[in-house]
């Protein structure tokens, strides 16, 4: 069986609230049971609570597969780049360092690379991947183009990404502002080299923790003035 052609994966990192539901749900997928393949990355933990969910983008020409010396990474006919084939993977870690999105993970004890395979056991049966099933903010959405266009009228899905001089097309889409995408229908990832998350919109001030001050405040949340 193959993933139905009319169903696509859309990611909108801006909507991620860092709840970790996707991380937990991912471990239930049968193709990598017990291991979470999604990366929920804090973009800069010291400055911001902003998170970004990163799943395999399923590149049209996967760099991970091209640089694999064992020829262990294969893309199925429906465009899904599968985890390394277990009999072949020699656990060199080339794919881990080569992937432009930083997706594959190496498990040295088992001598195998594993990565998100879009919950192949579920998507080939027409179901949503586990992460998209549980995502409360729809930062991870699996459905038709019509559905996403209806849900996000100000965004358009793009599937081209620039890394230096290299442009990579993917099966997974990222939501971009419609007007920006009209001028530049791709996401320049390397342009964010010096990008930092925006300063906090809400400033917190911690009160002096003197015994008198804490004695006055019964509610621990009152220690912080907003």
């Amino acid at each position: 069986m193959a993933k139905p052609d009319h169903l696509h994966f859309f990611i909108d990192p801006n909507r991620c609230i860092g709840c970790q539901a996707c991380v937990q749900a991912c471990t239930e997928c049968d193709t990598h049971r017990g291991e979470s393949m999604i990366h929920l990355e804090y973009v800069e933990r010291a400055r911001s609570v902003q998170t970004v969910p990163v799943v395999c983008m399923h590149c049209e020409q996967p760099t991970c597969a091209e640089v694999c010396p064992a020829d262990a990474i294969k893309r199925t006919g429906d465009g899904v780049v599968q985890s390394a084939r277990k009999p072949r993977c020699i656990a060199c870690g080339n794919c881990v360092v080569a992937c432009p999105f930083g997706v594959p993970e190496l498990y040295n004890d088992r001598q195998i690379m594993m990565k998100c395979d879009m919950c192949y056991d579920r998507t080939t049966a027409g179901r949503k991947p586990m992460c998209a099933t549980v995502c409360p903010s729809q930062a991870l959405f699996f459905g038709t183009r019509e559905q996403i266009e209806q849900l996000r009228p100000l965004s358009v899905p793009v599937n081209r990404f620039q890394f230096g001089h290299q442009v990579i097309s993917t099966r997974v889409f990222t939501m971009m502002p419609r007007e920006v995408a009209r001028r530049q229908p791709w996401l320049d990832v390397t342009a964010a080299m010096d990008e930092r998350p925006p300063e906090r919109a809400v400033m917190l001030r911690v009160l002096p923790s003197t015994p008198e001050a804490t004695a006055d405040v019964g509610d621990p949340y009152a220690e912080v003035l907003i």
Binding site: D12, Q50, T51, R152, L154, V180, L187
Partner: peptide
């Protein structure tokens, strides 16, 4: 690389002044 992907998408919204992200 993972952080830059999220930051690049966020920057696209910030660069698009006057329009708030969908949601």
């Amino acid at each position: 690389r993972r952080a830059m992907y999220g930051l690049a998408q966020g920057a696209a919204w910030r660069g698009h002044a006057g329009v708030a992200p969908d949601g």
